[in-house]
Simulated scan of single mutants.
Amino acid sequence: MDFLRQTDVIQWKDGEYSTIKENSVDDEYTYLFIDYLPPRKFSTYPKDLEDFAIGYCLGEGLIKDYTDIDSIKLDGTNVLVTTKLSHDPEEDLEQDGIVQERKGNCEHACVCRLLEYNGVNSDNAGGIRSEMKTIEPNMSDLTIDATQIIKDIKHLTDEAKIWQKTAGVHVAQLKYGDKIIIREDVSRHVAVDKVIGAAARQGYDFAKSYISYSGRMPADMLIKVIRVGIPIIISNAAPASSGIDVATMGNITMVGFVRDNRFTIFTAPERVNLEK
């Protein structure tokens, strides 16, 4: 199912107008329930929601590895995630002011400090970035040819089937050797979460993987790739200064403005073979 909707619209072009049918994305709200944390609400293109849940948990630091997840259940567009990680319920819930929930003899609380990573908080779920303190630099020796960057963005566009029909979604692509995963979503964050989640399920080595996607590159997007250990991020769009700062601290290679036959490297240029 493509989750597309056709609407009769009036199109004006060169002084003439006509009634045509236009495709649009039939986006829906998705609620993500992780253990006993408060539910989180997202507007999504409601496909590949299990991949999204895994990638979100990894990117937000709620799990360290795919194996930390016990189960994922889908109820329509509601996603229920149970992890193996929990702190002492009394301690965690007293600090967060959340009412404790009990099932038999089992007490379950929120997993590790929400959105916390070395003093940097992600803001793509409504949180607020805190002052940056320390981020462990990514030491991956992965490299990519300059010409490959151009090819990757072209491949991204060629395979963005929902975008081609609607121009209403973002698309993300994760490449690991000769393996490629592509996902689309109305949210650039969710699109990236989906490819990260799918790669985690398939056991890809993130230190040897990189992401190409459509969308800006602010700090919260860079924090996501830093957490999972991806060393290179490529976009046809611009970075934000906050993203450049985080990429510099995390030794992430950030490539932007990939258009036609050009691009701009903002950080860690040593991973790009400029002569190829």
Rank of each mutant, 00 (worst) to 15 (best):
A199P: 01
Y204Q: 08
K179P: 03
K194W: 03
S187L: 11
G229Y: 04
V246E: 02
A240M: 12
G243K: 00
F206K: 01
I211E: 02
K224T: 02
K175V: 11
Y210A: 08
V195A: 07
M221R: 06
G229F: 06
G229A: 06
V228E: 00
S241A: 15
I232V: 10
I223C: 03
I226K: 03
D245K: 02
N236M: 09
Y210V: 07
V225F: 03
A199I: 01
V225P: 14
Q202G: 09
I180N: 13
V246P: 02
R183S: 14
V225A: 01
Y204E: 10
F206T: 09
G215N: 09
S212C: 15
D193S: 09
L174Y: 11
I232R: 04
G229V: 05
S187C: 06
K194Y: 02
Y204S: 06
R227L: 00
L222Q: 05
I230K: 04
I181Q: 14
S242H: 04
V192L: 11
D220E: 15
Y213C: 11
L174E: 13
S235P: 14
V228Y: 01
I234Q: 03
I226N: 09
E184H: 08
M221N: 04
Y176A: 07
V225D: 03
A191F: 01
K175Y: 03
D185P: 05
F206Q: 04
S212L: 15
I211A: 05
Y210W: 08
E184R: 08
R188I: 00
A238R: 15
A219K: 13
D178L: 02
D193T: 10
